[in-house]
């Protein structure tokens, strides 16, 4: 067996070669946008720690077209993350008897609800006191 001169094929850009791989790479790549958002929040915390002027300077930047565009991208990243997260979730759990689609849809629905709660809580925080 070991005398046969076998040929090893290079993998190349394998992730472009079928829809499943492309979807996987989109899922994985969304992590860069999530990382960017975590850093954005961290930066905002830093500005907050420096006092009102510094923080309000950051807020003003957030309203700029570039920042809005960036956040729309990050929002897209979060949505891709959420949908693909719950798509694979059934594979990480013991069998429940539910069809996998039900777990995915349930998860995405829960996420939509939870995100709405966040927005509502923020609205409440903004108006209270």
């Amino acid at each position: 067996m070991s005398e046969i001169r076998t040929y090893r094929r290079p993998m190349g850009r394998w992730w472009t070669k079928n829809p499943t791989y492309r979807r996987y790479m989109a899922r994985e790549a969304s992590s860069f946008l999530l990382f960017a958002y975590a850093l954005t929040l961290l930066y905002g915390l830093w500005r907050l720690s420096q006092g009102q002027a510094a923080y309000e300077g950051w807020l003003a930047w957030l309203a700029s077209p570039f920042a809005i565009f960036l956040h729309l991208l990050m929002l897209l990243g979060m949505i891709v993350h959420t949908v693909t997260w719950f798509e694979v979730a059934p594979k990480t759990m013991p069998k429940t008897g539910l069809p996998e689609r039900a777990i995915t849809l349930g998860g995405v629905a829960a996420a939509a609800f939870a995100s709405l709660v966040v927005v509502a809580l923020a609205a409440w925080w903004g108006t209270s006191r």
């Binding site: 996987y24 694979v88 990480t92």
Partner: peptide, 19 residues
């Protein structure tokens, strides 16, 4: 494993290796 999930899609016997 990084949960690509393609293995379960191609399995001819429905074994679901990803799971």
């Amino acid at each position: 494993c990084t949960l690509v999930g393609y293995c379960s899609q191609v399995c001819p016997k429905g074994v679901d290796p990803a799971h």
